[in-house]
Structure formats: C-alpha cells, structure tokens
C-alpha cells in the first residue's frame, strides 16, 4: 500500500508528511513529526490527553486520521506559547499547581484554551462540563478549575 502525501498547517507552519491510511493524526504528530506533547492515554477518545484543534474545533487526535489533515489547520500544545512567552493558561496552571504527574496537562491546556476562546467568562459548571472529556487522575480537578478561572479573569483584563 502506498503512503498518502498530506499537506497541512501545524501551529501556523506549513507541513508535509507521508502516512499510511490507517495512521491517526496522533500517530503522525508523535511518530512522524516529533510533536509528542499530545499523549495517548486511551486511543479511543475517552481521556482527552491527545486534544488538539483542527480547523478551530477541539478534537481528540486519536480519533482523526492523519490523511484527514490535508488542507486543514492544526494547533497543538507546542504552539500555545508565543516564543518564550507562556500563554496565561500555562502560567496559571503553574501558579496554581494544577498539575501533578502532568501527562494530562497538554490536553487540558488545549481544551481550556478552546473554551476561553469561545467563552471568556465561563461559570465553574461550564468549565467542569467543557473539560469533562479530559481525565486527570492526580488532582481531583480542583486546582485545574481554579487555574482556568484565574486565567479567564486575566484574559478578560479584569
């Protein structure tokens, strides 16, 4: 079976890669492009550790085929900071100790950014339900929710 040639945009950069038909976007990011920030916690869309944005929609990269990336715009955790300037969500996750083992953190950050881009002033309940697809086994979510609330406030400039 011949490989599929794909042209796409990742974190603003034009990227071309070859992949097999059955490879997922997560496989491509991690194994072919060296972008290992998205993690595979389940491979079935149940944990959110591989959260990325595809054309502005939050998705699990494990449930997207690599070939589907053709012509699309993909954003990953690696593109979240602007050079050495962290995104306010990243800063607040650090300040609130919103991570312990940290393996779920990239997925949470990508998902939380998608939330705040769409809804700058979410309630605690809205945050919790939006992030329900991101599993964390260490923190009990408390400090994560607080970090998102605090980042939202900072981003609103209040």
């Amino acid at each position: 079976m011949s490989a599929i040639a794909v042209s796409t945009t990742i974190n603003g950069d034009e990227v071309e890669f070859l992949c097999q038909a059955e490879e997922t976007l997560l496989d491509v990011l991690r194994e072919r492009l060296g972008l290992t920030g998205a993690k595979e916690g389940c491979g079935t869309g149940d944990c959110g550790a591989c959260s990325v944005m595809v054309d502005g929609r939050l998705v699990c990269a494990c449930l997207v085929l690599g070939a589907e990336a053709e012509g699309r715009s993909i954003e990953t955790i690696e593109g979240m900071a602007n050079g050495d300037e962290l995104h306010p969500l990243q800063t607040k996750f650090l300040e609130h100790a919103a991570l312990q083992c940290g393996v779920c953190t990239p997925g949470f950050l990508v998902a939380a950014k998608a939330l705040l881009d769409a809804n700058p002033d979410p309630t605690e309940e809205e945050i919790r339900f939006w992030l329900a697809g991101n599993l964390c086994r260490c923190t009990g979510y408390d400090k994560i929710v607080r970090a998102v609330q605090d980042a939202a406030q900072e981003l609103r400039g209040s």
Partner: peptide, 16 residues
C-alpha cells in the same frame, strides 16, 4: 515547580 514549564509546553518526556 522546576519541571513545570516542560509540562505545560508539551516538552516533558514520558515513557512513550
């Protein structure tokens, strides 16, 4: 935490 920036930028290296 000292390993924090690596973990919020996706740079931290886990088993896989």
């Amino acid at each position: 935490r000292p390993d924090g920036v690596d973990k919020v930028t996706g740079r931290a290296r886990y088993g896989a």
